[in-house]
Amino acid sequence: MSISAKKDDSLFESEPYYEAQGDEITLFEAAYKNHIPILLKGPTGCGKTRFMEHMAWRLKRPLVTVSCHDDLTASDLVGRYLIVGGETQWIDGPLARAVRQGAICYLDEIVEARKDTTVVIHPLADDRRVLPIEKTGELLKADEHFCLAISYNPGYQSVLKDLKQSTRQRFIAIEFNYPTTNLETQIVVQETGLDRDTASMLVKYAVMTRNLKGNGLDEGASTRLLVHTGKLIMSGIDTRVACRTAIADALTDEPDLLAAINELGTALF
C-alpha cells in the first residue's frame, strides 16, 4: 500500500508559497463554501499540488493527499479492519478520515485508480455528501468543512483512462496551465534563489520545449523541472550541464528530439 497521506493531518503552519495564475483562489473558495467538489485539470508540474497546500492553509483545514495508482482499491481509501492486540479494530482510510474530521481530501491523478474505486467517491461528490462504509454498515456523513478535490491531467494519455462523464460532471473544473512568463520567472526566483536573469532564461527555454509539444514530445518542460534546474545551478552546477540533465534528458530519450532540445539550449546559454 502506498498512500502518501500526511499521517497527522496537521494544519499548515506557514503559508505555502503559491503564485495565483488567475482567479483559481476565488473559485476554489466559492466552491468550498458551497460544498461543490473541485476538479483540477492541467499538465504535470504546473502547481496543482502546491495550490492545494496553499488552499488548505488559507482555509485553515488539514490536507489529506492520496496519490492514486492502478492498484488502489476502495478499502485503501475507505478503511479496513485490522487486528490490534488480539482485538479487531476498524481503521479509517485517508478518505474516511478526511470526511470525519472535515479535512480537504485531494486525490491526485484520479484516472490512474481502478474504475471501481472511483465510484466510492460518487455519493460524496454530490449533494448527499456521504461515504457509505460497507464493512461497518456506517453511513458516514461528511463534516461541514470537508472538501473533495481531484486532479486529472488531460494530456497525451491512454483513452482507456479517460475520466467517466458520471464522475467528472460532479465537479467544477479549474484549469491550470503553465504560468505566464513573468509569473513563472518569479516562481523560479522564489523557489530557488536564482537571479532574475538566469531564471527568465530558464523560462524561455521551457517555452521553447513547450513549442515542441505534439511533434514527438508528449510534454514540454514543467515549472517543476525549472525549479530543479535552478536548484542545481544554485548548488554550483554549470548552467548548461544543469539544463541538459534536469531539462533535456528529463524530457525525452529520443536522440533526434534530444539533439534539437540541446541545440536550443546551446543557443540560449
Binding site: N211, N215, A260, E263
Partner: peptide, 13 residues
Amino acid sequence: RELLGRYLQGLSG
C-alpha cells in the same frame, strides 16, 4: 534539416 526544423519550431510559435 530535421534537426533545424525542430530547432525553429522550438524558437517560435
